[in-house]
Each structure stands twice: as structure tokens, then as C-alpha cells.
Amino acid sequence: MKIRVRLFAGIAETIQLRELTLNVPVGTSILQLRHHLMEQYPQASQEIAQAMMAINRSYADDGATLHEGDEIGIIPPVSGGDALPSCVISAHPLDVAQAFHQLESVHHGGTVLFVGTVREWTRGRQTSHLEYEAYTDMALAQMKKIEDDVKAMYPDVWTLQWHRIGRLLPSEIAVICAASAPHRADAFAASRMLIDRLKKEVPIWKKEFYANGETTWKSNPEAAREPEEG
């Protein structure tokens, strides 16, 4: 049977098509169509996995069945609920649920999220709050390099690195590094690589404010430059 598929926004831009006419088997479901499009257009697979679907201009779930002549809309998140980039420096709170949703895929069997939060007590000292500062342009460029290196090692992995800047209170989320993959071993390895390299290589600093009024800039020993001999 023949159906019409309409594409919008970033998905249409990535695929460079606004409309497809497809012949699909009778009884094809939205989920089966989603799988087919992800396989045909791997460059847009993540966006297609996260998109809403509509049949004849009404939202439909993955179990809905298609019929001859149906118009299917592939709808990315609308304005106000847009997906964030994979590399983010943000002055706003980070959302774990949003991070998980962005990495969901029917082709992935494992998603690993590392969530770094602000501790209230460190070595017996009470922290009132932290302030994070970043060399933002360089930080984003370095995060993208880390992402590219991880994906070169694990080609089927999707990743994200989100980091807060500004004032954070105890228990607030400072960083999310996450990876999803067809198999859990790759998701675990990629997530660990993301946070380890971010902590070492990305120019983000934190200033600790203690309850007794003292303050200190905290360095990451892993990121320190080795002194030259001689």
C-alpha cells in the first residue's frame, strides 16, 4: 500500500527532503515505519527516534496501524520543548529526564547517565554553594572533540555532555555525561570516557563557598600540567 510521509524542521534539513511516497506492507505500524526510516536515513536516526508521529494530522502512538493513502507527519519537538545540543554549557538547571529522553532509541539496549551533583560536605567542611565559570567557546569546542573521539571508538553510541555554570546549591546537578548504545558495555565505557575527559580537558572551574565564609578555587589534579624537567 502507498503512504505519504511529510518531514519538517531539522529532520527535513538533514535528509534534504520534505516529503516521501512509500510503498509499505499492509498492516505496517508507526513503530515499523519509524524503524524503516531510521535505517534508510541513518544521518537523521536520532531525530527520527525522538520525533512524534501523526496520522492524517492527528498524533499517533507507535502501535497505530497505517492504511492506504495515509499522510504521516514526522514531527520533531516543537518550539519551547526543543531537544538540546549534545554539548551544552548552561546557566539553567539540567534535566535528567530530558537527557534520558534525548538518548532513547528502539535500537539501543543500554543508556548510562553520570550525574554529578554539588556535595554539601567535603572533608568535614560544609559548602554553602558553588560557582562555576567556563571559557565557553573553547569548552564547547573541546566537548565536541571528546564526543567525536568517543563516537570514533564506539560508532553506534549516542552521547551528551551538559554542564552548568553560575551559582549552584548543594544537591543541584552540575554535570550530566551520558551515552546510549545497542549494548550496555559500550554505553558504560563511553559514559565513563566522557566524564573522565571532560573533567581533565574542558576549561570549566568551580569556586567553593563554605558555611564559615571562606572561599577557594578548586582545581582538578587530573587537569594540571606536568612540570617540565630541568
Results as ranks from 00 to 15, higher is better:
179 A>W: 03
167 R>D: 10
181 A>V: 02
94 L>C: 12
32 Q>K: 13
112 V>R: 04
216 T>A: 14
29 S>E: 07
2 K>G: 10
35 H>Y: 06
18 R>G: 07
6 R>H: 03
201 E>K: 06
61 D>N: 14
205 W>M: 09
115 V>T: 14
68 E>F: 07
103 L>G: 02
165 I>E: 08
26 V>K: 11
86 S>E: 13
126 Q>E: 15
23 N>S: 14
40 Q>K: 10
101 H>P: 00
201 E>G: 08
63 G>A: 14
135 Y>T: 06
25 P>V: 15
86 S>G: 07
86 S>T: 12
49 A>F: 06
157 V>R: 00
119 R>M: 09
229 E>Y: 11
11 I>E: 01
5 V>A: 05
154 Y>E: 01
128 S>E: 15
102 Q>C: 06
132 Y>L: 08
104 E>C: 09
125 R>A: 11
209 F>E: 07
152 A>G: 09
23 N>V: 15
117 T>H: 09
138 M>W: 02
140 L>C: 06
25 P>D: 15
123 R>K: 15
166 G>W: 13
27 G>E: 11
166 G>H: 12
133 E>I: 01
14 T>S: 06
65 T>F: 08
188 F>A: 02
153 M>L: 14
153 M>W: 05
188 F>H: 05
45 S>M: 08
227 P>Y: 02
137 D>W: 00
28 T>M: 13
10 G>L: 10
222 E>V: 10
81 G>S: 13
158 W>G: 02
112 V>A: 03
159 T>I: 05
215 T>L: 08
143 M>H: 03
224 A>N: 12
147 E>Y: 00
190 A>W: 01
201 E>N: 10
20 L>N: 05
186 D>V: 03
197 R>K: 15
143 M>V: 05
204 I>A: 05
148 D>C: 08
14 T>H: 00
138 M>P: 02
58 S>C: 06
202 V>C: 01
110 G>A: 05
49 A>Y: 02
161 Q>E: 04
171 S>T: 15
174 A>Y: 11
17 L>V: 07
145 K>W: 04
199 K>S: 09
171 S>R: 14
150 V>M: 04
196 D>R: 05
149 D>A: 11
57 R>E: 13
78 V>H: 06
96 V>M: 09
197 R>D: 10
187 A>S: 04
63 G>Y: 07
144 K>S: 03
66 L>A: 04
174 A>L: 10
25 P>Q: 13
185 A>E: 06
90 S>C: 07
58 S>T: 14
74 I>D: 01
200 K>Q: 15
156 D>C: 07
48 I>W: 02
158 W>I: 03
18 R>P: 00
32 Q>P: 00
66 L>K: 03
191 S>C: 09
124 G>D: 09
230 G>L: 09
162 W>A: 01
38 M>D: 06
54 A>S: 14
182 P>E: 04
186 D>M: 04
42 P>T: 11
227 P>A: 08
169 L>M: 15
118 V>S: 06
210 Y>T: 09
131 E>N: 12
229 E>A: 14
74 I>K: 04
138 M>I: 11
111 T>I: 13
123 R>H: 13
188 F>S: 03
104 E>S: 11
102 Q>A: 05
82 D>C: 05
143 M>N: 02
193 M>Q: 08
40 Q>Y: 00
69 G>C: 13
77 P>L: 12
22 L>D: 08
